[in-house]
Amino acid sequence: MKGMDIPALEVFVAAVEEKSLSKAAERANLVTSAASKRVAELERHLQRTLLQRHGRGVEPTPAGALLYQRAKAILRAVQLAESAVQVYSAEGQAKIRLAANPSTILQFLPDRMARFLSQRDYVSVDLIEAHSYDIPRLLIDGSIDLGIYHANHPATGVTSLPFATDRVGLVVPIGHPLAGRAELFLEEALDYDLLGYFPRHSLDQFLAYIGQTVTRPPTVKLQVSNFETRCRMIREGLGIGVVPERIAANYLSSMGLVLLRLRDEWAARRFFLAVRDPVGLSPVVAELLAFLSQPA
């Protein structure tokens, strides 16, 4: 063995922390004999006894205790180095993991991402579609670098910046009894079947979101997540639906639909741009954060 290697240090650290070579072997997915061999090779290389073996397990010698502290720092540095490299794709491009809800992806990101990427050949973006209520958790878990979500208030546990606002409206087919209305409260439309997939992604969550603004739940016979498909279903008379106004505008004339303004306060939505911690962001993630933070 020419020198200390990372797997041997990992087994040694585990043995000190677990006070047992067999438990250290379990942590490293090794058999006990293999874990013992790695520690023995480490001791042979350093020409020092690092662990005292006894009937109750193992404990570090003074030299072992010193190595344990240094090994922890080494392993942490290796972990940080691996994390740093992960921001690059296999081809060497800087990689950013961005999650956003469907409304954001359709309404706000195409133009902005086109402008951002057109000037940065060295960057690739993995754009992930996710529910707004999942995005803060994905940030906290480290599964994504940036997230855009909508909520009444910034989420806890992450750093959020104002990003955009929109409104949802009620889409009905031409000729529907409500089609002549310019605006209304959702309460006034509850006599008609409502196509699901709501701004909060399930009927129960939607009702919690809108609070006491309706006196009874809407009748929902069909759940449709895709906005275009939802509008097609509305055209076929299968119900009326809540759709972001900017997205609905793409389908009104071609599908014979009418968009009614919802007067409910919850129809106005706030979107937030978030990171887990703005300190220590990779340069490219910080660059995209600054770019998206600018007014559209």
Score class of each variant (00 low, 15 high):
Lys2Ala: 05
Gly3Thr: 00
Asp5Lys: 04
Ala14Leu: 09
Glu17Phe: 01
Glu18Gln: 14
Glu18Met: 08
Leu21Gly: 10
Ala25Gly: 14
Val39His: 07
Ala40Tyr: 15
Leu42Phe: 12
Thr49Asp: 09
Pro62Asn: 02
Gly64Trp: 05
Ala65Ile: 00
Arg70Tyr: 04
Ala71Ile: 00
Lys72Gly: 09
Ile74Thr: 05
Val78Ala: 03
Ser83Gln: 08
Val85Met: 03
Ala90Trp: 03
Ala90Arg: 15
Glu91Gln: 10
Gln93Met: 11
Ala94Glu: 03
Ala94Arg: 02
Lys95Ile: 01
Arg97Pro: 01
Arg97Leu: 00
Leu98Trp: 10
Asn101Arg: 10
Pro102Gln: 12
Ile105Ala: 12
Phe108Leu: 00
Leu109Ala: 06
Leu109Thr: 02
Arg115Leu: 14
Ser118Gly: 08
Gln119Tyr: 06
Asp121Leu: 06
Val123Lys: 04
Val123Asp: 04
Val125Tyr: 01
Tyr133Val: 15
Pro136Ala: 13
Arg137Leu: 11
Leu138Glu: 08
Ile140Thr: 14
Asp145Lys: 01
Pro154Ser: 01
Pro154Phe: 02
Thr156Ala: 15
Ser160Thr: 13
Ser160Tyr: 00
Leu161Lys: 13
Pro162Phe: 05
Phe163Trp: 15
Phe163Gly: 11
Thr165Ser: 13
Asp166Asn: 10
Val172Pro: 09
Val172Ser: 08
Ile174Ala: 05
Gly175Phe: 14
Pro177Gly: 02
Pro177Met: 02
Ala182Pro: 12
Phe185Tyr: 12
Glu187Tyr: 01
Glu187Asp: 04
Leu190Trp: 06
Asp191Glu: 15
Asp193Ser: 09
Pro199Tyr: 04
His201Ser: 13
His201Thr: 13
His201Gly: 12
Leu203Ala: 02
Asp204Cys: 07
Phe206Trp: 06
Leu207Tyr: 02
Ala208Gly: 10
Tyr209Asp: 14
Gly211Gln: 01
Gln212Glu: 12
Pro218Trp: 11
Ser225Asn: 08
Gly241Gln: 01
Glu245His: 03
Ala249His: 06
Met255Val: 09
Met255Pro: 06
Gly256Leu: 04
Leu259Phe: 06
Arg261His: 14
Leu262Ala: 10
Arg269Asp: 03
Arg269Pro: 03
Phe271Ser: 09
Phe272Ile: 12
Phe272Met: 12
Val275Glu: 09
Arg276Asn: 11
Asp277Phe: 02
Gly280Trp: 00
Gly280Val: 07
Ser282Phe: 04
Val284Lys: 03
Val285Trp: 03
Glu287Gln: 09
Ser293Leu: 08
